[in-house]
Simulated assay, not measured.
Amino acid sequence: MANRKYLLAALLTICCYLAGAQTVTFRQVDSTSLAQYNAGNWRALIVDGNSAINSGIDYPVLRLRIAYAQFMSSNYHGALAQYNQVLKSDSYNQTAHYFSYLCNKYLDNNPAASYHASFIDTAVINREHIASFGLLIAGLETGVKIPSNAQRGMGSYTRASLGNRLGWRLQADQSLAYYNQSITSTTPTNGTTPQITPTNTTFANTQFEYYAKLGYSINCRLTLLGAYHYLNNSFGDVNFQNHVAMAGIKYAAPFFTLQGDANVSSITGARVTQFNVQLSTYPLGNLNFYTASRLSVQTGDIKQNIFTQLLGFKLSKQLWLEASGSFGAMNNYLEADALYVYSAIDVSQWKAGSTAFFALGQHAVLCLNYTFEQKLDYYLNNNYKQNSITGGLIWKF
């Protein structure tokens, strides 16, 4: 009986020793993560590093190593999550700010990139040629709209744009655009009289536009948005001075962004308020695959709900594709922070399309878009199809 008692005690001691041997210590985590970092074993470093944090071993150097492993794995959102934790304990950490700048730059989040750049040492700023004032992006797009309606001529659209950094926290985007299409009015089948021009005449529908948007970074996650869009519309001899104002806020978190904004417009005599909420997700932590879901609610002289869904993915090292669809009548509808205004005489009932982005080196991106629209003839009240093809070039400084 006594021997059995001693044997049980010995077994218990051995079990406790083995259990203790499985407990990870700070020294083990530090040496293992350093070895994995030096060897470039990024996957193991991410897995083992996160496991150590979950077990209670958490310190800035470990976070920096995991973040760099995520960065080297092109998981920029995952890296930002780690760098944000480092900055909570050391708000001026140069490594965290520099790589956060790069991560946001690769995610096309210029406001957050600029915010982090404001904390980077001057020597690094000069070495990387990062300026607090100057051009960020320039673009040119032009396209045609081809309707299947004999009473509608082929439309053309051209827009030139510039994006400037006006300090570390302020960015301004501006563009000029011009649209032109010939319209032939037709006697309505219901006997009503058109409101803009006499029937059975052909007139030019032209539109000149100026657009300006400001983005101010409150911090690395919150950006205040404001925009103004002026449109000079002409329907033959009838001219309209149209105005659109937008105010919103955008929240950027690891793996998703959320934006809400309100738009007030006066377009061709109609006063409309449009509220938008958009959720964008980045499941892989980069632009290899992303989604955007947007709900727009119009009130005022026009009441309508529009839903838009977008999917984007990387096909190759230089090629990205986006596919999107919008559902709901787009009457004086505002899209892309009020950059695009759907104020045509014929209202689009729904649209779907795709865009290809092809990188031409480090700075230039070539864009090609195709869009199909179901439109409603203003005079005859019947549907017709419209195909649009747009090409563009974007230059990133």
Rank of each mutant, 00 (worst) to 15 (best):
L311N: 01
C367A: 14
S388D: 07
M246I: 10
N41G: 08
I46W: 01
A19S: 09
R65L: 12
H363S: 09
N219V: 06
Y228P: 00
F358K: 06
Q274S: 08
N332T: 06
H129E: 13
A19N: 05
W350I: 12
L321F: 12
N75F: 00
T273V: 10
P194L: 08
Y115P: 00
I218V: 11
F240M: 01
R127H: 13
Y76N: 06
T201K: 07
I137H: 07
L222G: 12
A253L: 10
S296V: 01
Q28D: 10
Q36P: 00
T189S: 14
Y68V: 07
Y179T: 09
W395Q: 14
R169K: 14
G248A: 02
D108L: 13
A227I: 03
G143W: 07
F235H: 10
N205D: 09
A253Y: 12
Y92D: 12
G167K: 08
N3Y: 03
L315M: 14
A352Y: 09
N382L: 07
V144R: 08
T158I: 15
Y6P: 04
L311D: 04
G325Y: 01
V347P: 15
F119N: 06
T268Q: 15
I345H: 13
A329Y: 02
V264N: 05
Y101P: 03
A292N: 13
I218E: 07
A160V: 03
L376R: 07
L376Y: 03
T23Y: 02
Y98A: 11
D346I: 10
F99T: 07
Q349H: 02
L360Y: 10
A44M: 12
P198H: 11
P188N: 08
P254G: 01
K5M: 14
Y83Q: 09
T206G: 02
Y59C: 09
Q22Y: 07
L287M: 04
G155Y: 09
L64D: 02
T184H: 08
Y384F: 15
T122H: 15
Y379V: 12
K385V: 10
G391R: 08
T189H: 11
N239I: 10
P147D: 05
A79Q: 01
L368D: 03
A131H: 00
V347Q: 09
G167T: 07
K375F: 05
H363I: 01
A352K: 06
W42R: 10
D237L: 02
N190A: 15
A123K: 15
N288F: 01
V277H: 02
F99D: 04
N239S: 15
F99P: 04
N387A: 09
N190I: 15
L231A: 10
L224Y: 00
Y178H: 13
F99H: 11
Y157F: 13
N332Q: 04
S100G: 04
G285E: 05
Q318L: 02
F313V: 04
A204R: 06
R65H: 05
G361N: 06
T13E: 04
S343P: 00
D30P: 02
V297T: 11
A344F: 08
A227G: 10
T187Y: 15
Q171S: 13
L140V: 05
A344N: 11
G155F: 09
M330D: 09
C103D: 05
T193S: 14
N75Q: 06
Y370N: 03
L80Q: 00
Y68C: 02
L34N: 07
S280D: 01
I345A: 15
L284E: 03
N164T: 07
A96K: 11
L107H: 00
S326I: 03
